[in-house]
Write a protein that binds this DNA or RNA. Sequence first.
DNA 1: CTGAAAGCGCTAACAA
DNA 2: TTGTTAGCGCTTTCAG
Lengths: 344, 344
Amino acid sequence: MPPYLPPEAQRPLTLRDVSELSGVSEMTVSRVLRNRADVSPATREKVLAAAKTLGYVPNKIAGALASQRVNLVGVIIPSLANMVFPEVLGGISAALEDSGLQPVFGATDYKAEREENVIYEMLSWRPSGMIVAGLEHTDAARAMLANSGIPIVEIMDSDGEPIDSLVGISHRRAGREMAEAILAAGYRKIGFLGSKMPDDHRARKRLEGFSDVLQAAGISLAETEHYAGGSSLAKGREMTQTILSRRPDLDFLYYSNDMIGAGGLLYCLDQGFDVPGKIGLAGFNGLELLEGFRLRLATTDACRREIGMRAAEIVSGKSDDGLIGGRHIELAPRLDFGDTIRRA
Amino acid sequence: MPPYLPPEAQRPLTLRDVSELSGVSEMTVSRVLRNRADVSPATREKVLAAAKTLGYVPNKIAGALASQRVNLVGVIIPSLANMVFPEVLGGISAALEDSGLQPVFGATDYKAEREENVIYEMLSWRPSGMIVAGLEHTDAARAMLANSGIPIVEIMDSDGEPIDSLVGISHRRAGREMAEAILAAGYRKIGFLGSKMPDDHRARKRLEGFSDVLQAAGISLAETEHYAGGSSLAKGREMTQTILSRRPDLDFLYYSNDMIGAGGLLYCLDQGFDVPGKIGLAGFNGLELLEGFRLRLATTDACRREIGMRAAEIVSGKSDDGLIGGRHIELAPRLDFGDTIRRA
DNA sequence: CTGAAAGCGCTAACAA
DNA sequence: TTGTTAGCGCTTTCAG
């Protein structure tokens, strides 16, 4: 990229410029700009005035190198397109608000190799901590994180061994509890609709827990329907039509997320099916975005915002007990029956 | 925050460590790690092996300071919660893919003061370019951007004067075109439902364009309903009920976004209203997420992904003509009648 | 309260 | 192809 010269190009301003204009040493200027207390009000005024007239913006790169301190927290998630993650990020941002730390996001597209790369890039900026979605990483990624010397918090999932700290829910348990609720309500011919992504470990674990309970009850999944690509109402609608045309006798549909579940619900309502009498439905996530349908879809709330907040608290050293590393927080997923599982 | 010491705490590795282990000068190690061509295959091997066994992660802070080059592009948007922005980010990421540049995101919560702050923080990391949503900024923010010496691209909106480059659509025009379509279809008692946020300038401009056309036709907005907070189907449903209970004679509802528009659509369908015969509806954005409803909501596509891509191309110097600064790209918003505006 | 000196870890520029 | 030297712009440390 050629050097970019806007109308009035100038060399970037440095502390020295502010120092000269204000007639105060660079060191003192630096103190003022960092809000350190040991500066006389008079000098402070002079310096601030000079900085303002020049439009000086400090160079954090130099500052970070000199102080060996970086007020950044790396946050690594699979995708921004999946509405689940923006909520986690919201929690992180909120909790980091006045910690002096700033989150920096990176997305992996659910690809382990890409994740390794993003982690490497992030660590090369020497952040104060890292928050990473999921427990499954390449060996190299685990090693980098483990050796980074900063707090690492793995989030969203608690089924596995964390590198350092962990904040999440058990997706196996979420799957089990949903299966138990469904069986208790009397449904027996159960279908599953979910993504094909082999790297969506959390969806996989939910299905495992779900299947375990069915099996223990002597039942197996009657039918399965997979899809590729992003989730949408349209996709859920279409998959539901497909699976029901193959197996019209199904009496329950468990979706791997609320978005396709809601699409399925729309389909069932449009078809005039008796929900939840003849057929029940459930999703996963507790997307409040989707409230507003005639019937509320049964779901499991994944505590997304709380997960983000707790993780951020650990990274910023604000968690209850003052410890920073090695914390293990498992939140309880809350099952919400909504209107699409019949009551016993 | 106390220094964090994980099980095997160690001082961070430096080039020097790799240099010593491989028996090659720091400078040459640096060359290998930056993939520069002028290194013999033999040395390259040695160095890479040493770096790998140590688990060395370069320090980009030092690198950036020395080279005066930062491969980061700052991206500033109002909110991640509004699904519109993740799509823009997707476009940016895609276009930046193999440019060697990495996007870094910041959110402003639609607050000008917060935006100023985020811009300041970002600029202090000396990014290679900035992409900022909207044309309205505080004077200080404009000044900082203008004096930064890097390419600045303002996106989403083309109704105003950019600091440097611009990629967006005219929201006034989008509003006007929708009004024209609605009038042409014969609707006359028109209500508007939108957010209260005074800082959502783009929604404001759409409404202005919309009202202008109505006025020119001798019609004025029959009723208005405002809300605060995030958009959701539930909110749209509720607002629709409210506005219609006040003015049951309305024959068209124009929503400031698709999410509340879709909520309104659900309400109307549940009530058994004749859509689009008796009452028409339209939103804004072209959220494909919402396709899958029985009727497709009329909307205007805001070209979000394309905006992101074009902006990223400008920043990375990849745009057609080789110029970097001062570009002005206005995309044409595409009106989609869907199923909720009756055909003439 | 203020200033001077040293150096953070890396790379540009030049020399060998 | 490789090495040496001199900073990048700031903060730490210590002296005044």
